[in-house]
């Protein structure tokens, strides 16, 4: 038959070993990776720093955008009887579990040259990555802000009103009372975007020095078997997650603590 080589079927493709053979066991390689990783971190390797800085810019930008748009929407839904509020909340709650790869795929189709937003030339830029992460963070920030504000005791609003607050001051007072819950939402949003890889790798393209962030570098370097940088970035990502969680805990404790002098006003 045309196209089929005589002498038997093609040999099965060999699955490449993720770790190049060097005479060392996997555990040794990983340990060596850790040692090299710490050296990279301690030496403040410029490549490493650039990747971290871009990650912080992308995730920070996405979070800032999510807060700027999500907090007013959450507050509006909590303080006013908006039409379709139930529907918007259902959409937001669904959005909290959006798979990042799906976000990346849809955004890719929209931003690609032939897509409806192709004229913006955003594909494979940090801007596209910020938009992708914003889409992931926005429902979390908005929904948690709404929950925090709607749960403020109604007496707070009445107290503000009888003390002479105008409607804006009244709303700001209620939002201020919900501040710990709102910050919790922000930190939860940050946690979601710093750890995700699916959307940014699709719309960012993982271009070295331009759109390469911590998570996409880990994916790439692991694929290449270059564990030093991957592990170093993994440690940094874990450190960031730890910091985010510690901040979350501290803020939750600050909101609930029942004694002591006011530290934050």
């Amino acid at each position: 038959m045309e196209g089929v080589r005589a002498g038997g079927p093609y040999p099965l493709p060999q699955t490449p070993s993720p770790i190049p053979y060097s005479g060392l066991s996997h555990v040794d390689t990983i340990l060596q990776g850790f040692i090299s990783a710490f050296k990279l971190i301690l030496a403040l390797d410029p490549e490493l720093l650039k990747i971290i800085w871009l990650s912080l810019q992308v995730s920070g930008g996405a979070l800032l955008l999510a807060i700027l748009l999500g907090l007013p929407l959450g507050a509006l839904m909590a303080l006013r009887r908006l039409p379709l509020r139930g529907l918007i909340l259902s959409i937001l709650n669904t959005g909290m579990g959006l798979p990042p790869v799906v976000v990346g795929l849809v955004l890719y189709l929209l931003l690609s040259r032939s897509g409806p937003l192709g004229f913006m030339s955003l594909l494979y830029t940090p801007g596209a990555m910020i938009i992708a992460q914003f889409i992931l963070a926005f429902p979390i920030v908005t929904s948690l802000a709404h929950t925090a504000i709607v749960n403020v005791n109604p007496i707070i609003r009445q107290a503000a009103r009888v003390l002479g607050a105008n409607p804006w001051q009244e709303a700001l007072t209620v939002i201020r009372e919900a501040r710990y819950g709102i910050i919790t939402g922000g930190i939860a949003g940050l946690g979601r975007v710093t750890a995700e890889v699916g959307s940014v790798i699709i719309v960012g393209g993982n271009i070295a020095g331009y759109t390469r962030v911590i998570t996409t570098t880990i994916a790439l370097e692991t694929d290449k078997g270059n564990f030093d940088l991957a592990i170093a970035l993994g440690i940094i990502l874990l450190g960031l997650s730890l910091l985010i969680n510690l901040a979350l805990r501290a803020i939750q404790r600050l909101g609930r603590t029942s004694s002591g002098v006011i530290l934050w006003d």
């Binding site: 107290a159 503000a160 009888v162 607050a165 007072t173 201020r176 006011i262 006003d265």
Partner: peptide, 27 residues
């Protein structure tokens, strides 16, 4: 702003005693 009601449940704001009392003046 020329009248006020002290609610039975007060409605204490989650801030310091000073800032609670200062609220009406700040606004």
């Amino acid at each position: 702003r020329r009248l006020t009601l002290v609610l039975p449940g007060v409605g204490v704001f989650n801030t310091s005693v000073f800032h609670n009392v200062a609220y009406g003046l700040k606004i």
